[in-house]
Amino acid sequence: MSAKLTVVRSGALTTVQDSGRHGHAHLGVPRSGSLDAPAMTLANRLLGNDPGAAVLETTLTGCALRPDRGVTVVVGGAPCPVTVDGRPVAWGAPVRVPADAVLNVGTATAGVRSYVAVAGGIATEPVLGSRSTDLLSGLGPAPVRDGDVLPLGAPARQPALPFAAPWPAPPAALVLPLRPGPRADWFTPAALRTLTSATYRVSPHSNRIGLRTEGPALERRSAGELPSEGMVLGAVQVPPDGRPVVFLHDHPTTGGYPVIGVVVETALARAAQACAGTPVRFTPG
């Protein structure tokens, strides 16, 4: 029997995430997976896990977990206070949690999403090759709730060598390099200039589907409806209100609003850690 984690406090939104569900976009299945993939990968590496082993992704308010036997964990991503049975322990480094002790992942002091990796990984049942919770279409495990019991995999026999991990600080200002297209020609030249010169702010309505922004509306050349077409991760879709939305991992696979440009994928981890109100600039990428 391998170890289990009981969810003592689920927090605002805590989901199981791994490297995502690939190869099914043509069936309407979003990729999902950790929004801050480098944070997940680093936390897993510090434990000797597979880099894409399933972890818990929290949102702003952390979570609390109780293992039924001693486990090693890493809490990374958004910085936050971490305690074991009330005693402060390290953030961003391996921590031993004894059997029946409570690991508390506190409210983020910066950033949005903390990642809780456990040696052996979260071992919920995979769906289409992934354990990720997909909030758009409901595939994978539901967001965790108080009292849920999560199975764990077997830890690696040889734990990773300890090393000083460089955790990037959450962004005080978000710079998103963007390439125009595929529907940049649906917008006025002024809209394209506005997009790369104005400062937007992260909207509090952002979620795992998209980073919504507040700022000047982008004007289209003409009204008209775009026939549904495939959407990529990082697509900057412009709905009728004119405010750009950057598609994150739970984005719909097809959509009918024009995409003015695509943010380079390596910038999306920073977007996932940008709190509401963070200034956003789109730059030519």
Binding site: H22, G23, A25, H26, P227, S228, E229, G230, V232, T253
Partner: peptide, 15 residues
């Protein structure tokens, strides 16, 4: 090509 995603008048080739 990782994903071949048809649309109404398009096919997206992703990955």
């Amino acid at each position: 090509v990782a994903e071949i995603v048809p649309g109404a008048r398009t096919v997206l080739l992703d990955g």
